[in-house]
Design a protein around this nucleic acid. Structure first.
Lengths: 193, 193
DNA sequence: GTACATTTGGAACGACTATTCCAAACAAAA
DNA sequence: TTTTGTTTGGAATAGTCGTTCCAAATGTAC
């Protein structure tokens, strides 16, 4: 029987993700990754393939982690409108807690690699659609329950909400100021009437 | 007297900017830059300093160019509200014309370097403030002329508009779809009543 | 304890990185 | 035409890049 793997895979992914998040894909070297994870080159290659494969694993790790957190944040309420409001409050909180100003790994990856890496491009698209769908679902339910009007379609409002979220990550990275972000959310969500 | 410089500086900056724009700062090598500009290593270093200095020059070149284009787009009207609407129509056009999906160099730079490069960080902040101020000025004038209401402050609406623009660049990079972008603009600008 | 299958550390690889250096090319002034 | 000061191309530098390789270490089954 083979020797067992000594490291905790989730731990390694967490460390690697943190590094890619902070320095970007091109800004992170395999040497950085060995130092951060504590694994040797061979272990890293043996367990996760090359740099690109490891990065893909990290992206998926990040996404499932983010989704889990968001769902937990909005889990307390049944009202779809409240879910939306809580989600944005939560996002602003997350942004303001991001002291290193690393932003959102998904958005960072979009701007860095979307146009030069097809595999990344499709992952980005898939995630965008998923996020859009999530918002649209909430809006649809809120409209059905009469919490918000039907002046605009759930599709359009959902896209606007995702767009506002993406904007918040950029705005927060450029200038992490609570009042600014709160203002943005206040105005952007004022369409939900 | 010295030998004269043979190349056109603006042309070199344009080529270099295009490369940084497409591949990012860390993704672009000095070798790439010599090939794209046609200059030799020594000429590049002699005329623009090191890679970082050249990049800063490119960023400023890009910004002044973008500002010029935007101002030209909105130059046709005197109404501040129309200026805002035209600006967003123009932005959507620009995004849809961006076939390579390179996005906005300023936003790409924000996500790539803002958190690891102080000099970039201050430039990003400066530009953010300038853009914010531009939108706020238009909103303020529109409010004074009664084109839009005073439910929200010009500051808040201006921030929201800039945030929407940043979001559009991300949304457009992830999924460059005219209907989606139009929907976003329609909903986001519906707060201007 | 021995055989086996896998992981591990570390050396080694060639390619590429940003940058420097120098001699040759060159245009204008003397 | 000679001098002068700068630009130019290309070689050279030292370092880092992602990746591969191999011998040693190690845990399990017999």
């Amino acid at each position: 029987m083979p020797k067992e793997v000594l490291f905790n895979e989730a731990m390694v992914l967490q460390k690697a993700t943190g590094l890619f998040w902070h320095k970007g894909y091109n800004g992170t070297s395999m040497d950085d990754l060995t130092k951060a994870t504590g694994l040797s080159r061979s272990s890293l290659y043996n367990s996760f393939g090359d740099k690109h494969s490891l990065f893909m694993r990290c992206l998926n790790y990040y996404l499932s982690d983010q989704e889990k957190s968001l769902m937990q944040a909005v889990g307390g309420t049944a009202s779809p409108l409240k879910k939306i409001k809580i989600a944005f409050k939560y996002m602003v909180d997350v942004i303001l807690r991001d002291e290193k100003r690393d932003g959102c790994l998904m958005i960072n990856t979009t701007t860095e690699l979307c146009n030069v890496d097809e595999e990344i491009g499709t992952l980005v698209l898939k995630n965008t659609d998923a996020m859009e769908h999530l918002f649209q679902q909430w809006v649809k339910e809120a409209q059905q329950q009469g919490e918000i009007g039907k002046t605009f379609s759930a599709q359009a409002i959902g896209k606007h909400l995702l767009n506002t979220y993406s904007g918040l990550r950029i705005s927060g990275q450029a200038k992490p100021d609570k009042k600014s972000l709160d203002d943005i959310v206040k105005v952007a969500l004022s369409v939900l009437v």
